[in-house]
């Protein structure tokens, strides 16, 4: 029973790891992986000296920081609010509407975002113009606006979905605590502050730490569909750069070096984050 799965992992997970060796070679498809010449660390030297590298690294980290700072608290807030809703049907309806974008492809969501924000026909610019007299804003083509669009669209897709774990943690809080607080005359706010929030503290901590472990990853499908030529200075991240320069311009070895750099940092981040979780006395991921 286990043979197919072992073969799968060897061939499609471990073989590509071995394939990372081309970062130290001058890979050409005709020569094959073994036939290509060794060049040592040349690609890494080129990488660290190039302007592009620092640009895509900065963009990758910045987009992650924005998503973390603005995106991380939203599910917590939504879960706190949802938890106070007493009418079951209302709660369920709101939840289902908020979860929905999570199941929709980034192509569709990106297409919608671009359409809605279009300077000529987009509904957002129309509303801005008619209600506030603001001239059309080129949201998608403006380097100042693009990260905002990126962050908000990420929140749109994932914030509702992110509430699930918090709501589950809230559901496991002992109702007697609230009863006791009520008898003592504690207001709703105090109950949230002193009972609900401490009750989900460890969930928040774990999810926050896990999120930090993925600071080097940017959703490739989201970035690719939202980005365009005029905002590459802020929208080009490691993975889209590897795709464009590596595959479309066939710069295989050079971009593999970049990919390997990303994988290694990502690996170190996740492993150290796991140590951190364990130090907090929680169960780690492995």
């Amino acid at each position: 029973m286990l043979l197919p799965i072992i073969l799968f992992y060897v061939l499609f997970k471990y073989a590509p790891m071995a394939g990372e060796v081309i970062a130290f070679k001058n890979y050409r498809f005709a020569d094959g992986i073994w036939g290509s010449d060794w060049v040592g660390l040349r690609h890494f030297h080129m990488l660290f000296e190039s302007v592009d590298f620092w640009r895509v690294l900065r963009n990758t980290l910045l987009l992650n920081v924005y998503s973390l700072v603005f995106g991380f608290p939203v599910p917590i807030l939504l879960a706190l609010l949802l938890n106070e809703v007493r009418k079951e049907w209302y709660k369920r309806t709101v939840q289902n509407l908020l979860y929905l974008p999570h199941f929709i492809s980034w192509v569709v969501l990106g297409g919608i975002v671009i359409a809605v924000l279009s300077p000529s026909t987009g509904v957002v610019n129309l509303i801005l113009k008619q209600a506030f007299g603001i001239e059309p804003i080129y949201f998608m083509a403006d380097s100042a606006w693009w990260p905002v669009v990126y962050t908000l669209s990420g929140i749109w897709r994932e914030a509702g979905w992110g509430t699930i774990l918090y709501l589950a943690a809230m559901a496991s809080i002992d109702p007697l605590l609230y009863e006791a607080a009520k008898i003592d005359g504690a207001s709703k706010w105090r109950q949230i502050w002193h009972i609900t929030l401490p009750g989900i503290r460890s969930t928040i901590a774990i999810l926050l730490i896990l999120r930090m472990g993925h600071m080097m990853d940017v959703g490739l499908e989201q970035t690719l569909v939202l980005q365009n030529q005029s905002v590459l200075d802020v929208a080009d991240v490691i993975s889209t750069y590897v795709y464009r320069v590596g595959l479309q311009n066939m710069n295989y070895s050079y971009t593999t070096a970049l990919g390997l750099f990303q994988s290694l940092i990502g690996f170190l981040l996740v492993v150290s984050v796991n140590q951190l979780i364990r130090r907090f006395g929680e169960r780690g991921l492995w």
Partner: peptide, 11 residues
């Protein structure tokens, strides 16, 4: 350890 796009593509 997630390997990059290029080695998978070559494979």
């Amino acid at each position: 350890f997630v390997s990059g796009i290029i080695p998978s593509f070559i494979l």
